[in-house]
Nucleic acid binder design. Structure first.
Lengths: 148, 148
DNA sequence: GATAGTTGTAATATAGCATGTTACATCTTA
DNA sequence: TAAGATGTAACATGCTATATTACAACTATC
């Protein structure tokens, strides 16, 4: 399994929104061109970001505006915004029918839950440490390298 | 997205193999009964565990034997054994067609790769800390609680 | 205020993957 | 030698991610 590409698409979009901030016509079609997906995908991802309060948009009006500075938007914010993982169950998909008549079967879920949560927490903690400013800086650094 | 239930199934199987160690006929059908899935699923999961060197089996002969003590089998060992995530690409699925003619598009991948790896590493590090002995102890504790 | 451009969203299509199931050759054990 | 088990291939099925078309509602500009 893998975390949906919606996540990297969202990071790409926010980076592009900032990078092309002063340009006209940074609409869903332009962004779709940069990301390499259908404009409707861009609009739905931006829709999720808007619901999460990360960007502002105006229906009918081109583009989107970041609601916060880049260093206040973390990977975790985006990961949550675009529903990267199942909200109800979390990162791990537990098999659904362990046998209640078996001592292992009826207790394994409880026995594992805390450990699975610890793994997910470790991952999410790291995501909270990484901001879009980090990505922006790395992107600009790569662009500068090209110039040489 | 979610990590395949093959992972929790594998943990369940190993726990059951240990718990019912002294019982006869702990075959794929018995285990399938405890886990609540088809016996063929059990055999394929055990097959992966065998390929990874975590259990020994003998074709035609019932059951499986743990290759190492429980405290030397980590969540990470199992997660790797059962191919919980894509081997080539890792935990995150990067969108596949960023535009090489766009400065952001042709650099975003390089700019993100290190950060994505850091997230995956954080998760895997936590998985390496958790052993099947931990799960076994928690399971037995839950079983004891029932007795009261 | 009319027109062109844009967003938001519903509806549908499609492909890939996880899981279920049947079947059977091959092996072990008694 | 017979019964029971594994290993694995082949196929079925449902779910999810992504792509795509279509269009109503809104904005910006002339």
């Amino acid at each position: 399994m893998q975390i949906t590409s919606r996540f990297t698409i969202a990071v790409h979009i926010i980076t592009a929104l900032d990078y092309f901030r002063d340009m006209d016509r940074v609409n869903s079609e332009f962004l779709a061109g940069s990301v390499g997906v259908n404009p409707v995908i861009v609009r739905t991802v931006i829709g999720k970001l808007r619901e999460a309060g990360l960007v502002h948009t105006l229906k009918g009006s081109s583009g989107a505006e970041l609601a916060r500075p880049l260093d206040e938007i973390t990977f975790y914010d985006i990961y949550e915004a675009v529903d990267s993982v199942n909200e109800d169950e979390g990162l791990f998909h537990f098999h659904e029918q362990p046998n209640p008549e078996c001592p292992v079967g009826r207790n394994i879920h409880k026995a594992m839950d805390g450990r699975l949560a610890a793994v997910q927490n470790a991952m999410e903690a790291e995501m909270k440490r990484i901001t879009l400013k980090d990505v922006m800086e790395d992107t600009r650094a790569e662009i500068l390298k090209e110039a040489k």
